[in-house]
Design a protein around this nucleic acid. Structure first.
Lengths: 211, 211
DNA sequence: GTGTCGCTATCCCCTAAGATAGAGGAGGCG
DNA sequence: CGCCTCCTCTATCTTAGGGGATAGCGACAC
């Protein structure tokens, strides 16, 4: 070990696609100043590996089995408030971005980002500097000023997106049909949609619902 | 060169995520019997690279800029009917799978497949043997017997998914509202849905529409 | 305690959506 | 040629969906 060699940036990867993990691992391990110390295929594993390795950076996919990215961010920062987490995903909805960043993730980038950007994002986050590409930042700002949905409204929205009728929704949530309609109307207003189908489209695009 | 060394399997990769290409490339180049000879980031590039290199296998993502996977399959097989194409994607809807395989793709696998499966799929397809995982095959069979939508119905479905009203759809397609309703009704029947919102949910899950 | 917020609920009104049935023209195919 | 599918249009009828407003109740904050 030479005296000029700094300690490498230690990275944990979490993504449910082996091929993506391989790609990231190859990229990272090729760099002189960083190394992969752990790979997780789902959310729970990600948390366990974080505790085991206490890496300088955790690179996290949003959609994963067991526990999704947002939940992992929340849990890890609850345990280790100084954790540096970089979200790397295909989802560019303003709600996803907003959730992650407001939970305390240090960076957010899209999977179609070029290699150099990915690496510089890892370096930035490892030094506790936030990293957000301009497009992502723009989305996060879009989210500002837009009204949030309540928990109940999100539950109703989920059922609406599955194609359920108001009556059906009411039965499942043990409320009256009138109340279901009240919630749906609130959703339409907040999402600025004129029909439930449009509301689903908007919600999908914004990342309020998935699938 | 030793006499026992066979010619390597020459592979072209097409995926819009650099990180995925890197992962695949790393995996492939690590194998003694295969090598990556080209990488494309969109559909048009994929076609060009196929013509340039005439690889033994092309690994193709479904959703790509410029031209999507199905279109690439169609075009390449039109030019070179003996081309061996392996689809590798996250989309597991029966329609996506059915489209690709019936167009002539030799294999279809999901991005969450383990490394060994990916490699054996590439080897299989390179020898002109079809490769389909059991889950994927099951989906393809599910598609059998299900009615197809006409072009017009697909166009209407797309607009329905965007949240347009019947009147709006009619205006955009230059038909009467009644005709729009007729199409919507046909869609509901074929997708076995009772409302347009459910139809959108079903269509999405089956891969008839994206986004 | 007063105010705000979230969840619940109810009433009226009206339109968009879906169910049903029928029909004619264009084009492909045996 | 007839047969079939697709696309188009029509008409009627019923219901689910959506607009607008209002309000009681519990939780929580100030």
């Amino acid at each position: 070990m030479s005296a000029v060699v700094k300690t490498k940036i230690r990275v944990v990867l979490a993504d449910d696609h082996p091929v993506v993990r391989d790609g990231l691992a190859a990229m990272v391990n090729q760099q002189a100043d960083m190394e992969v110390v752990g790979e997780a295929g789902d959310g729970e594993e990600a948390i366990v590996l974080y505790e085991q390795h206490r890496p300088d950076v955790m690179v996290l996919d949003l959609r994963m089995p067991k526990r999704d990215g947002v939940a992992v961010v929340q849990r890890v920062l609850e345990l280790y408030p100084k954790a540096c987490i970089l979200i790397m995903t295909t989802y560019d909805g303003d709600e996803d971005i907003f959730q992650c960043l407001s939970q305390g993730a240090k960076g957010y980038l899209l999977k179609d980002a070029p290699r150099p950007e990915i690496l510089s994002a890892i370096r930035a986050v490892s030094e506790d500097r936030p990293y957000t590409s301009s497009q992502v930042a723009a989305k996060a700002l879009q989210r500002m000023g837009k009204p949030s949905l309540t928990q109940r409204e999100l539950a109703v929205l989920q059922l609406v997106a599955e194609g359920r009728s108001n009556k059906d929704i009411a039965r499942r949530l043990a409320i009256t049909e009138g109340t279901a309609k009240t919630h749906v109307k609130a959703i339409l207003t907040k999402l600025d949609a004129i029909s439930r189908t449009e509301a689903v489209a908007v919600a999908h695009k914004r990342g309020l619902i998935h699938l």
